[in-house]
Design a protein around this nucleic acid. Structure first.
Lengths: 351, 351
DNA sequence: TTGTACGCGTTATCAG
DNA sequence: CTGATAACGCGTACAA
């Protein structure tokens, strides 16, 4: 009936050799151990015939490595963000023959600890700790190296490496898009700014994007006309902020701090009979799905979710394969470039 | 330095008892085995003090159960779909102290087989095989019970249970929303219909939704004014189909087969200067994020991603805990209700 | 070149 | 009530 799994011993018996020999052959060290050609063949053949597969639990118990890593995130659902993150990690892992445990904490530190523990209980080779949006986090008690912070920084000094989107450079890119289209006046910010301190609490993206925007604009000798801080970055907030703006000013270009804000801005602009990009250009960040759905399609600086996930796995394995202790903590944050997706929402200023 | 994990033997030694006794106490069978109160306490105390955690690999090797299940999906990224699916599964699993392996096949049967194998190699207790959109799939070779099909049916007869959204009833719901608002004329379908055969290839949702719509409308004695089949269900397809429709007719209500189509329909309606819902009502399916972002917010019948994920692990554990042989194969498809999200896109027909 | 025996951390069996 | 001892499947030092 329920045919038991075939074990190494089974294969050895059927091939008429000892478990040791079978083990050597099947782990590719047959040559090295100078097993005779035909014996090796015999083992390989029978293993193939009976569909032998090593029990990874057993191997793990014996060798201490399970070819398994844990991916602990504060969310796996909201926005496509986590999905692509996981996808990138998954593919990079698969290329190494590694499987992923997924855990979700919903921001509950207690749950986070339990999850990390549950993964160590299963002897994972390492852990990726991911945040939904870039920010500084408190490391869960019990988290040990090898581990990588994805889209997050440790609040307290820590030897753990971080993988982050290059937000400052993204800010520069957004500003550059406008500059290159010829904009110098009437550039307004939706979501944060204009001053360095005008950012929603807790987020890293806002301050870094703002920093990049301000720097690039300043280098070109142009100043931001205004900025509006939004606590939340949802469409309704963009709608409200832009509506308020339009009551007192006539912008030529908007930098929205994310695509959902931009969606709201589009709605406000439409309400005032303004055209994108003829009357006002719009640049944004994230490259949400909606960015390519709305009309005109939105020019935006993408968060490279997929690449971030991949990179995290790469860095984790660097960590796992490392013997020496690590060095300069500053060399430990890896920035992943944020590409700009040029679409239809930017045009030269109307004269 | 790297303080070795503490083992059961360590605890036993420190508590001055045998590993057996410690095992009994720590697995909660102390009472049953009638271990003396103080011995039990001693074991518990030391285990607590040294933070003892059982090595699940060992337990798995010994008992054959790993408190781990595999979740194999054709995609984890596209749309919020997979995210919520996984989230539901994750939470249900966590409540049972079970961890999830995630795998993504991208529709590659070869990869699917490998993934399923990799999970069996790790001795998972069961597997959830999920599809991104509802359809009939070929079972990967080597997939054995216990397993559950999520959002999918087996092409060939199989003893595996399926968990599916209740699409026929969703179709009825959509029709009912319109009927209850007083619509009887000028109801047009965007994405499929009007006849039973007018559906895109491969999808189950289209035929079942259409079936429900037609049945409910027919029962009320109303007939569909027209239907337009779209091969793809993206915003541009909805835009094209609705634009074509508007050139030849003046609809009072639209049933769009998903929210992305509806977004396109909104755009076409706007192009023709038509108002939602004053001039034409719109109902749709899926409850994508955009459904609540666009204006007016879209009334739509939600795919209960989260509930589907939860239900899948419930059914999987029924399967795992089952001793007896299975029953009626028809009793093996579990339908999860699709709730309608009433928002602002439906109004009584204008007179 | 191949086989024997032990250990990884648990649980189960059985004797005391 | 408690404690040896075997066994799960595999890798590997050591012996042959």
């Amino acid at each position: 009936m329920s045919s038991r799994r075939v074990t190494l011993a089974d294969v050895a018996r059927m091939a008429g050799v000892s478990p040791t020999t079978a083990s050597f052959v099947l782990s590719g060290r047959g040559e090295e151990m100078r097993i005779s050609r035909d014996v090796a063949d015999r083992v390989l053949k029978t293993a193939e015939k009976v569909q032998y597969r090593p029990n990874i639990l057993s191997v793990g118990l014996r060798t201490g490595t399970t070819r398994t890593i844990g991916f602990v995130s504060d969310t796996v659902a909201t926005s496509r963000f986590a999905g692509e993150l996981i996808k990138g990690a998954l593919e990079a892992a698969r290329e190494r023959g590694v499987m992923l445990f997924i855990g979700e904490t919903e921001g509950d530190p207690q749950l986070e600890r339990q999850l990390v523990q549950a993964m160590y209980d299963r002897q994972v080779d390492g852990i990726i700790l991911a945040a939904m949006y870039t920010r500084a986090i408190a490391l869960p008690k019990g988290l040990a190296t090898p581990a990588v912070l994805l889209n997050a920084l440790s609040k307290r000094p820590s030897p753990l490496p971080s993988v982050l989107p290059d937000e400052p450079e993204a800010g520069r890119s957004a500003a550059r898009v406008l500059l290159e289209a010829g904009h110098r006046d009437g550039i307004h910010l939706i979501g944060a700014g204009p001053a360095r301190r005008d950012v929603p609490a807790g987020g890293v993206a806002a301050v870094e994007r703002l920093e990049g925007i301000r720097a690039t604009l300043a280098e070109a000798g142009v100043t931001v006309a205004s900025g509006r801080l939004c606590r939340e970055w949802e469409p309704r907030d963009g709608l409200a902020a832009t509506t308020a703006l339009l009551r007192s000013a006539r912008p030529r270009a908007l930098i929205c701090f994310n695509d959902r804000l931009a969606l709201g801005a589009y709605q406000a602009l439409a309400d005032f009979g303004l055209n994108v990009p003829a009357d006002v250009s719009v640049v944004s960040f994230d490259d949400d799905a909606i960015a390519s759905w709305i009309r005109p399609a939105l020019t935006t600086v993408a968060i490279p979710h997929y690449d971030l996930g991949r990179r995290a796995v790469d860095v984790l394995f660097d960590e796992i394969d490392r013997d020496d202790v690590r060095t300069d903590p500053n060399a430990r944050v890896h920035r992943v470039p944020m590409p700009v997706r040029e679409r239809e929402s930017v045009a030269p200023p109307s004269s």
